[in-house]
Each structure stands twice: as structure tokens, then as C-alpha cells.
Amino acid sequence: MNAAQPAPCIGVLALQGAFTAHEDALRSLHVATRQVRTPADLARVAALVMPGGESTTMARLLETSQMFDELSARISAGMPVFGTCAGMILLAKEVLDGRTDQRSFGAIDIGVRRNGYGRQVDSFETDVEVSGLDRPFHAVFIRAPKVVTTGTAVEVLATHDGVPVLARQGHIMVASFHPEITADARLHQMFLQHNGFTTEHRSTSTERG
């Protein structure tokens, strides 16, 4: 049990949602991944990706799986976390239009409005300029949350129509869109490198087709 791990393992929260797509993106960067469904899984990962899906479903399953408090403690202790869409909602300090009983980790100083861009008929895709990337990133917004407030400690990495859509505060990174479904792992790579993990540079072969 206590044997040293050969390489740090990146967890993907696998309670519900697009977790296999995140695993594919991470594997394209040649990092070890693990699906996280229980506290035992969580104990074995060095960083975590929280996928798109339904935030109410994930919030409930975080409680029933006895992971909420443990994950909250790990985040406070500095574990890097990358949250996309529903994952962003769970990491936000303030959630508007959520359920009153919905808990979030308050790990990044932003306020988000659930389904802030509307329903599925309002979903859209567009290219966004990301600071630190030399070419735009194709961003797919699906019933996406909208960032309505950002604290001074938050670094906005990309905007769409003047609204932040990719942001970072220390070891926490969030996107209101879905980098996991475009077969372009540059944002995963940015997250890992920012937090000191080594990835294999394959900047062209992981582009979207």
C-alpha cells in the first residue's frame, strides 16, 4: 500500500459526466490516470480533473461516496484541480441559480451562474484566444455556466464576449467550456505544467481532427 508510485497519477473524478474524454486527453500527454469514485481512489492521486456533467448529480454523489470533506481538505492542502463546466461550478466560491442545498468547494474566487448561457438550444462553439497559447483554442459551450464575478486573485486566461471563460487561481484552473471533447490537450498540458508535472510535448499530434 505504501510503495512509492513511479509517476504521479492524475485523477479524473468519475462519478458522472465526460470523465473518459478527460482521461483520453491526459493519456495523449502520456501521464498516468485513475478514475476517482471513492476516498481510496482519491488518496492515490496527485491532482484531479473534475469533468463536465451535471453538477447537482456530482454534488450528491460526492456526499454519498464520502468524498466531499476529504476532497475539500485536499484542495485546501494544495492539490491541483482542473474543473470544466460542472467541475467549474463545483470549484466556484459562489453559485447562482443552483439548488439551495448545493455545496461547492469555494476553491476559486469566482461567482458563476448555472446554465448562464442558456439551455441546449443556446449551446455553441467558438475559437477563443488563450493567454500562453500561440493559437486559438476551439471551445465548445454546452449549457455552460457563466462567470459573473472574479476576485482580484483570479487570473483570467481567456474571455468570450468580454466574459471570462478560462481562469486560474494558484493550483485551481477552471473552464466554462469543454476542452475534453475537442481532442486538443493543450489546456490539460497547461494545467499540468503550471503545477509542476512533466508531460510529453506532442503539440501537433493531439490537435483536434
Binding site: 468519475a14 458522472q16 465526460a18 441546449q120
Partner: peptide, 8 residues
């Protein structure tokens, strides 16, 4: 993409 989000 929405179907991806409903997986699991």
C-alpha cells in the same frame, strides 16, 4: 457533446 455530459 451533451450526450457525453450525461454519461455515467
Amino acid at each position: 457533446g451533451l450526450a457525453e455530459m450525461m454519461k455515467g
